[in-house]
């Protein structure tokens, strides 16, 4: 305990604090960019997975297999696979890029199921009405299905991204200068492990906790407008 107190002034120097702030920014940036792109690609995956017709069967199977396989592989293994695969095709990809690609590949698999659930929550009759009016599959998706699926999709998608802030700790292993990497570095410099990893844990907590509250708030807010409308209707009836 004395050791921690003795080290604290040396540890919380402006230089170290700046380093940690920067690292926290990188952690957040990786998560946002990776999950954001992953989320967008997941829409494509879900859309392809719904391609009708016998000819598209292999396509559908690939989409299903992608989701199933990636949900069964540790993120750490995905990171290594992406790292070494990218390094065999290109030597000038930054570690940040590699980390973002790994996050993205993972996020696609997890958010695809969230998106599919949201889309399936829209009654099939809405789709039929649109198709009978000659709206194409994509137009039906954009104008009719997604606007109604949105409130079901957004809260769990945000919850996923927020929980993934923590999982990005694993990319410290390939040398991205994010929070966990800086923590190990400071620990190696001789600072107390309790002090360093306690501080790093607090940094993650400060990133994750408010955002998870925001996610819960959004869930409530997105869920209400329909309920209010229904309540108005019930009052009239």
């Amino acid at each position: 305990m004395e050791r921690i107190l003795a080290q604290a002034p040396d540890f919380f120097t402006p230089g170290n604090v700046g380093l940690l702030l920067e690292a926290a920014g990188l952690t957040l940036a990786m998560t946002v960019v990776g999950c954001g792109i992953g989320f967008a690609l997941a829409f494509v995956l879900v859309y392809l997975r719904q391609t009708p017709g016998l000819w598209a069967l292999p396509l559908r199977l690939i989409c299903i297999a992608y989701v199933e396989v990636f949900r069964r592989i540790p993120f750490l293994v995905v990171i290594y696979l992406v790292l070494f695969f990218i390094q065999t095709v290109s030597t000038d990809a930054s570690l940040f890029t590699i980390a973002v690609i790994a996050i993205c590949l993972y996020a696609v698999a997890y958010t695809a199921d969230i998106i599919r659930g949201g889309i399936e929550s829209v009654p099939q009759t809405q789709v039929e009405a649109a198709r009978a009016m000659n709206l194409g599959r994509l137009q039906t998706m954009i104008h009719v299905v997604l606007p109604q699926a949105w409130p079901v999709i957004v809260p769990p998608a945000i919850a996923f991204a927020v929980s993934f802030i923590k999982d990005t700790a694993l990319v410290s292993q390939i040398g991205v200068f994010e929070l966990t990497f800086r923590g190990k570095e400071l620990n190696n410099q001789g600072f107390s492990g309790i002090l360093v990893f306690g501080t790093i844990a607090m940094c993650y907590f400060i990133l994750s906790f408010p955002l998870s509250l925001l996610g819960q708030y959004l869930e409530n807010r997105l869920a209400t407008p329909r309920g209010q409308r229904r309540a108005r209707k019930l009052r009239r009836a």
Binding site: K184, N187, S192, G193, S208
Partner: peptide, 23 residues
């Protein structure tokens, strides 16, 4: 619950592995 679910498992394990020997 709030503390554990808002911090990485890796950091929790690092804390046990690198931190606790100090005490």
């Amino acid at each position: 619950v709030v503390f554990i679910t808002n911090t990485p498992a890796l950091i929790q394990i690092y804390f046990l592995y690198f931190g606790l020997p100090e005490v």
